[in-house]
Design a protein around this nucleic acid. Sequence first.
DNA 1: GTGATAAATTAGAACTATTCTAATCTATTG
DNA 2: CAATAGATTAGAATAGTTCTAATTTATCAC
Lengths: 142, 142
Amino acid sequence: MEGMATRPYTHSLERLRTAGLRPTRQRLALVRLLFERGDRHVTAEQLHAEALAIGARISLATIYNSLHQFTSAGLLREVVVDPARRYFDTNVSAHHHFFHEDDGVLHDIPGDRIALAGLPDTPRGTEIDRVDVVVRLRPARG
Amino acid sequence: MEGMATRPYTHSLERLRTAGLRPTRQRLALVRLLFERGDRHVTAEQLHAEALAIGARISLATIYNSLHQFTSAGLLREVVVDPARRYFDTNVSAHHHFFHEDDGVLHDIPGDRIALAGLPDTPRGTEIDRVDVVVRLRPARG
DNA sequence: GTGATAAATTAGAACTATTCTAATCTATTG
DNA sequence: CAATAGATTAGAATAGTTCTAATTTATCAC
């Protein structure tokens, strides 16, 4: 095992350490699910189901705790597209989203594709936290 | 009463009739609360509190029913900015939003101010329902 | 107007996603 | 390895919303 170019275990562990989070068994499992398969958009329930599916015993409370901790640590970012569900995105760089309203699937629009012009001045006493663009899609009528 | 230039009662009633909704006592009260004071962004609980405050007896269930019916009828539009609350906007024309993250206040950015360029092609089999831009604000650090 | 009927309203139960609580367990540090 | 701060957990609690089934009301035909 030693000396390999990439060691998933070490990588996940480092990711947690760097974020200032103790690498527990549960968090390691979640980091692997989240970050070893490219950009993902997950809800807590989805991630819980996946964790159980690979045999990781982890409670839903821990899923929620971890999603929030990962978000505070900058490993994840929350995307608000659905008033009934919280989505978390493993891509934390600047980018926007397509949201398929029929099935709840969310996916990225690369960050530099969209340009926004004409943003008005922000109201007095405030500053921009971020600007979210959501392109809501429906099945094409046909 | 007859012959007046604007008669709020008639106006509200017409608005409901035009939308194909029976003008009930409850709906009339809500239409007046919603549309007689310029553009508004309300949640169900807020609107319920307002209705009770002006002495209109109306249940929370009816508030929810009405908000959804008004939305289907094109009188309102839902704005998704907060994963824990549904906001309804009385301005149904094309426009975007400022969202004050600290206090949950939402307000309009006039529709023609913001220009979006570089939207990618929509995925096969889908078409754009709408594009939402939310500018999230936080108190300016000072 | 009156009666018949379809639609609307309602209280309260149910539901869903999420958060909280307090007990148990575990990673870290000395 | 013991002490301890932090993490995990089951299950209770909560918040917002939706549902259910009984009651009330608007509309329509007469």
